[in-house]
Write a protein that binds this DNA or RNA. Structure first.
Lengths: 196, 196
DNA sequence: CCTACCGATCGGTAGG
DNA sequence: CCTACCGATCGGTAGG
């Protein structure tokens, strides 16, 4: 019996209070970005003053890094599980895309949205975040390499295009006639090219 | 003989000084975002103090809106010209994509990059920018509607995916083995599906 | 967890 | 175009 993280990707260890603060912070970062979220904003939602948060966290930067890494850990596991249920390379890719969009488009999504534009985050921290994200994206390298693509498609470009496509859906998606799974299906339909 | 804007999309009327300041501001906004660029930063590059800029502009917000609108005006014209040289629907789309990527990936690009994440910009101004961008995107509605796509592809989703794909290339593209035109060709190759 | 505060930075202005 | 400044806001801390 392996330990399973909850959907939001925050470990459930530690004091409930800290955990609650992390959830609030994640939601605000996702909605308003790193610079657009002040410690006082987070405090307000938690019912305390901004300065009081420093009993639970070291700094705003460390808080963001922790949230970002937890989100990617959880996403990585969920995607890996979904991929493992399929054998066909295109089915495996579709499973990965559907899972990723489920995570990013969940209405209460605490996790990934907007953790992609790192220009707001101070330089030194940014490199840390980019390194973690690159590790995550390696998961897709294997999936793309297994595809039988037409030879005119460059696999490296193809992978970058697919990932940026997936990471950017939250910018324009509004819950309406199509579900996250529908969008994932459309993306895979577009990116699907069999080498015949 | 119609008046032609320069590639950077800033009208060449008015005092050269103001024009120079606009160019500097555009470059900084593109590199560091709206909130990441202070008026003092712009002043420093221009060789004056931040406060002195207000002789040439009304406010930071008005400055950004002016730059954004000029960039879209110029892009709109260049894309329209490129599209008009082709008759085949897929060739027209490819011409549009190539032109747009040329603009966004130009090494000194003052114009469009990063003028896409509007979360940094204050609410009231944001609506203005979004409205202008929507008008620009209508250009692509016509191009997509002219395609003979397989019926399982939703044209509205398809258009959103294509546009977000084009707008996001600057986030990961590094000048290397592939040119902007190469990337455009890869994107069109992926998005190309003939209804057979 | 609050009070009370720090040094820094922001957009913007008056007055010359 | 500068000097000198405004009110606001920021991340963070000391001391209780």
């Amino acid at each position: 019996m392996t330990k399973r993280s909850p959907a939001h990707g925050l470990p459930d260890e530690g004091s409930g209070r800290r955990r609650q603060i992390l959830e609030i912070a994640a939601q605000l970062f996702a909605r308003k970005g790193y610079r657009g979220t002040s410690m006082r904003d987070i405090g307000e939602q938690a019912g305390v003053l901004g300065g009081s948060l420093y009993h639970h966290i070291k700094s705003k930067e460390a808080l963001f890094v922790e949230l970002h890494d937890s989100a990617l850990d959880a996403a990585e596991e969920r995607v890996a599980v979904a991929v493992a249920t399929q054998q066909d390379p295109w089915a495996r890719l579709q499973a990965a895309c559907t899972t990723l969009l489920d995570i990013q488009l969940a209405p209460d999504s605490l996790t990934m949205p907007m953790m992609n534009d790192f220009r707001e985050v101070p330089g030194p921290v940014r490199e840390q975040l980019v390194a973690r994200r690159d590790r995550f994206e390696n998961l897709f390298r294997g999936l793309v390499d297994a595809l039988a693509l037409p030879p005119n498609l460059d696999r490296s470009i193809y992978r970058n295009l697919l990932l940026s496509q997936l990471n950017t859906v939250a910018d324009w998606y509004g819950p309406g006639r199509l579900s996250p799974a529908d969008i994932a299906a459309q993306i895979v339909a577009i990116f699907r090219h069999d080498n015949d």
